[in-house]
């Protein structure tokens, strides 16, 4: 037990060392850029400058500080990403269930599900906007499509990986279809569903930011483009880089946390 703890500490220690190493390289780069470029904050500002800009109190556009601008736009983007994520996840889960129930449907859809993963959906974002003519709908749709297929394929894989003997056990007990789903298929496929959810969470956020950049309707991507065109402070861009990284990573670990709450066996296994 003691050994386990020290090993765990080691794992975090080395991650922290790596993180420090990364920051050091960034700072060295920033010093070089500072010495050689005319506007270094456009290329690679110091980290303290980025963090400092978060706490700057002067108002930029008359009513909001830099951080408030980022925060309010982040709300717009993340809310749409979340709606798309939930819709996509629900649709993916449902489709996987239906495909598992009706073999012909599986045969019909499965090749296309594989095809979606080869198709650059993000590249299709502009046309979705053109078809829907609504930035909010486009955000939701793209986030939903990107969430949809990892959840659908992983759920289906989970339902298939259940193991023939476990199903036979249910048959030997004369369990009906509903009982087999309730007692066996749904709980046993749960870890797979969460794998899909974990993969797609950062993707949904990426998608939502990308769609923002296509039109000036607000959102992180929108102020990101403005910032890059120097319409506003460049630090808005750097704050977005910082926060999108944090949110992307946090979304992954957030889903992991939910998984542990939903699936206590998992939690116990994790701690053993």
């Amino acid at each position: 037990m003691k050994k386990k703890i020290s090993a765990l500490k080691n794992k975090y220690e080395s991650t922290i060392v790596w993180l420090i190493g990364f920051l050091v390289i960034w700072e060295i780069g920033a010093y070089i850029v500072e010495g050689t470029k005319r506007s270094p904050e456009n290329v690679l500002p110091h980290i303290y400058q980025i963090v400092g800009s978060v706490f700057r109190t002067e108002l930029v556009n008359g009513s909001q500080t830099l951080f408030q601008i980022v925060l309010s736009n982040m709300g717009i983007t993340l809310f749409r990403a979340l709606i798309g994520y939930l819709i996509g996840a629900a649709a993916g889960y449902l489709l996987a269930m239906l495909m598992n129930l009706f073999r012909p449907l599986e045969k019909m859809i499965f090749p296309y599900l594989m095809l979606i993963q080869m198709i650059p959906i993000l590249g299709m974002a502009p046309i979705v906007l053109a078809v829907t003519k609504d930035i909010d709908k486009s955000r939701i749709i793209i986030a939903a499509i990107l969430t949809f297929y990892p959840v659908a394929t992983n759920t289906l894989a989970g339902l298939k990986a259940v193991g023939p003997q476990r199903v036979e056990l249910m048959h030997s007990l004369a369990a009906g279809q509903i009982e087999i789903y309730k007692k066996l298929l749904i709980p046993s496929s749960l870890p797979y569903v969460f794998t899909g959810l974990k993969i797609s969470a950062p993707m949904a956020i990426t998608a939502s930011i990308l769609v923002d950049t296509l039109q000036g309707g607000g959102g992180l991507g929108c102020i990101l483009s403005q910032s890059l065109k120097h319409a506003t402070s460049i630090y808005i861009f750097w704050q977005i880089v910082l926060f999108s990284a944090v949110i992307g990573i946090a979304s992954y670990y957030g889903i992991s946390l939910i998984e542990r709450i939903v699936n206590p066996a998992m939690k116990k296994r994790g701690s053993v």
Binding site: Q165, H171, L173, A174, P187, L190, A265, M266
Partner: peptide, 21 residues
């Protein structure tokens, strides 16, 4: 007989549901 749930089966592997105690 199966539908009357009169069979008890033990497989080669235990076939336990690992999400249940």
């Amino acid at each position: 007989i199966r539908l009357q749930k009169k069979y008890g089966i033990v497989f080669q592997s235990p076939v336990l549901y690992d999400w249940r105690t």
